[in-house]
Amino acid sequence: MSYRIVIQTETNRGLKAELYAICRVTDQLVQGAADHEPSFRQIYKDTGMRQIKFMLNNDSVVLEPGILSYSHGNLSFEVVQQQAGQSGGFLGRAVRSAGTGESAYGTRVSGTGEVWTEPTRKHFVFANMEGGDSMLVDDKAYYAAQGSLRLSTHQHTKVQGALSGNGLMQPRLDGEGLLVIESPVSVHEIEILDVLRGETVTVDGDMMLMYTATMNPRLGPLVKGLRNAARSGEGLVYTLDGPGQVFLTPTHIAAGSLA
């Protein structure tokens, strides 16, 4: 028997998000005192599976394609299409095909009711963006966002050698609202760097989850010159200039989180 236990909650206006741990429940026989009958107690074991429930009260949420499990209530559904490279909504992992001109799709759920996403073993980060905030997100990290947030495709003109010279494209979020991000590691392993004006961050792209849009990255070798690059042993790295914040996953390795 399985049971869902809420482990995190975040709310913004008419949208509430709850993260659930899916546990396996078993009964264990407990021997009481000599003058008492034996009894059963329930043992909960975390399976590592997670599931998210969105509760809408006259609000909306835009989901990455394919994550809906079921819903109920007075809700309407709309397929959102965004041509890559144009202004407007950008959704899901379609950023990886943005250079080909393919369309990105997502599902906007509006109204009042509950929406459950598919169970998964992935980790999640809940965040509330405030008015005036702008974030650039790793192309594999977008999961869901409140309808009040504006999602668009951001193209980095200073990134060379990406997408056959067309630049690097990433999901960009602007405005105020609730955001849910997928992460390769647990939220406890994410490191947040506050980068001051005049400071820089150099990082392997695989470790970068998201960063504020004030930091326009440069992609290139760690040191200039082909011979020096070979001697350094490093491939291409990102260099970001402050001010801003960078969210890193330094414990993320090929085999997954260290947790």
Rank of each mutant, 00 (worst) to 15 (best):
G131H: 09
I43E: 12
G131E: 10
H36E: 08
A104Q: 12
W116L: 15
M49L: 15
G48Y: 08
R96A: 12
P119Y: 11
T112A: 06
A84I: 08
A144H: 07
V137Q: 06
V80T: 11
K140V: 00
I52F: 14
L75S: 12
N74D: 14
I52G: 01
V62R: 13
G92F: 07
P38Q: 05
V115T: 04
G92D: 06
H72I: 00
E64M: 13
Y44M: 12
S76H: 07
A145P: 01
V125T: 03
W116D: 10
N57A: 11
S97D: 14
K45W: 04
L151N: 10
R121N: 02
S76F: 00
Q86P: 00
V125G: 02
G92R: 06
D138F: 05
V80A: 02
A104C: 11
V115G: 02
G88F: 06
L75D: 05
M55H: 09
G147F: 02
P119S: 12
Q155P: 00
A104G: 15
R93A: 06
P38S: 08
S39G: 09
Q82R: 08
L136R: 06
E64Y: 12
N128T: 11
G131I: 13
G101W: 02
D59V: 13
K45V: 10
S148D: 08
S134C: 08
